[in-house]
Design a protein around this nucleic acid. Sequence first.
DNA 1: CGCCCGAATGATAACGTTCACATTGAAGCA
DNA 2: TGCTTCAATGTGAACGTTATCATTCGGGCG
Lengths: 340, 340
Amino acid sequence: MATTPRRPSMADVASRAGVSYQTVSRVLNEPDVVRPATRSRVLEAISALGYTPNRAARALKTTRSSLIGMLTDGSALFGPAETTTAIETAARDAGYSVVLTTVGADDAGCREIGAELLSSGADGVLVVAAHEGMVPAVAAVARSTPVVAVSAQAPRVPGVEVVGVDQRLGAHQVVEHLVRTGARSVVHASGPQDWFDARARLDGFEQALEEHGLDGAVVGPGDWTPLAGYEMTSALIKDGLPDAIFAANDMMAIGVLHALHEHRLRVPEDVAVVGFDNMLGAEFLVPSLTTVSQPFADLGRLALQRLLCLLEGRELPAGTPRTLPPRLVVRRSTRPERTH
Amino acid sequence: MATTPRRPSMADVASRAGVSYQTVSRVLNEPDVVRPATRSRVLEAISALGYTPNRAARALKTTRSSLIGMLTDGSALFGPAETTTAIETAARDAGYSVVLTTVGADDAGCREIGAELLSSGADGVLVVAAHEGMVPAVAAVARSTPVVAVSAQAPRVPGVEVVGVDQRLGAHQVVEHLVRTGARSVVHASGPQDWFDARARLDGFEQALEEHGLDGAVVGPGDWTPLAGYEMTSALIKDGLPDAIFAANDMMAIGVLHALHEHRLRVPEDVAVVGFDNMLGAEFLVPSLTTVSQPFADLGRLALQRLLCLLEGRELPAGTPRTLPPRLVVRRSTRPERTH
DNA sequence: CGCCCGAATGATAACGTTCACATTGAAGCA
DNA sequence: TGCTTCAATGTGAACGTTATCATTCGGGCG
């Protein structure tokens, strides 16, 4: 009774079932090779003792930790959170655990973060809300571990695969919708340009603008927050408003709407407003926000699938996309499209 | 050249530095006991080889994994996300990594989730958005591992410590503010009652109602989403509105505001609205939302600190709170308080 | 000068698995 | 019957650490 209640090991299970520890190992790893009778005896012993395999020992022996590192931004943004959850669930289904690592605003300890992620023994790493600040950490990791980034475009790090939503396409869809609803001038309230997604949205915006010969301008960059959208819009109101404002994300759009409301400007009659992300609640803003829906959860699953292929040396199923399409969701913050 | 590029081990470092691997171990774990000259020689070898300790081996030997399990809800809610980040950062500072485990809506695999968390070898577990659905998993874990829950009240699981924001107090503050601003009747659009926080807010609401002799009712329960708030409010509009609506969280408040706006009802003149959480953007809703701010980040750090004490057998610093106070943030969705 | 002591380092064993190979036993076949 | 063969299980070693004990080497002191 005085002995420390050590977690049961294979040896304990083995002696209870009257077999050797190797047989127990086999029951766990290649069940069909052991005779049904012994197998069930072992299984019974396992559940009776509440045995769980010691992952440290397994990792030591196999040099594979069954851990996936997830590098993500510290801000509590909607999209990343959803992607994160999808990744974790899919990883668990595949027999992996996810170790979370957030990188804050400061680049300071960033290379160090990479080293820590590495030493945590992750078999592979997923980068979720990719921005410049992560590049040092990613570069440090990528030399010795497969990395898949969820991002609009490859962080300029060799050996990093990329899976993402086509942000440029999304921006195009926004501009085209605005054109169809009569806007002649559009301002993009841009996001932080060290984020790859923000840059791609801006690129797509400028390109679409040119294609349609629209008047347009870019203000910002903002930092994804409502306050940024609010301040940019307040400035615009002073300097002259366009027909429409395209915010880099829904949070900034909230600030845009607020500023307009504050000045008794009507949306969409005076100014149309579009966001990006289709976050929870976008539909219930005042007015209901036209925005671009991103398949965050699918994205997470796709990224994980890619990483698993890298890890296990499998080929990707043919036809697996590298890029997912966004979807424009038209609501009340833009003028209705003419239906012929 | 044909040999697999194995990660360097202590033995490699040792032979390069001309010492035994035990000395390398000592340099890492108790540096002062080794002579400065040899120590620097070893350190030089470490950095030259890019050696990082093998955590699996260490974990196997010490029976401590330096892993903290974080059990959290799958929904992409704002509060949990912020708490999560704070925990991860604090954990990393303390030399721990965080393995993330989300539990979805289905209770099905829930006990199993506990077992997996356990077998992942976490030294301790933090429960972040506690609700009934987690109880089986938590119970499974708690028998063999320290658990701290971030929650309004103890999930009824023995041996689980609790750290939380005083939700009842928050609800009290809301009701009192509403009373001071002239409301005579308040409806609480309640949250999912299997969440401990939602239950506590409801309790606090009812208690405060009684104390102040107010008219009141509870509608719901909702599921934290804007849609829920919207539907409850739509029903209220048909059946008769109170002076104020207290939504269980800000997301639901968004739906409440939307429904009111849709019926041309003015906030706060016709109905005052209050939320809970002070999520990013609450300030910029239309109108700016009065709500209860929760110190999500502090909460995460506090929970981690408590868990570390449990893990390392330390006493908590005297005066460390078990409960953090919320803070009422008065904005424009409620009538202004009279200033004498 | 011989002894002992402490500081610095080395050697050995163990943690709980999995891998590679050895052993057992029963069945198949001439 | 005696041999081979294959299925089922057991044995020994190793993964990279840390814990424990053993060894070495100067120097202080009687």
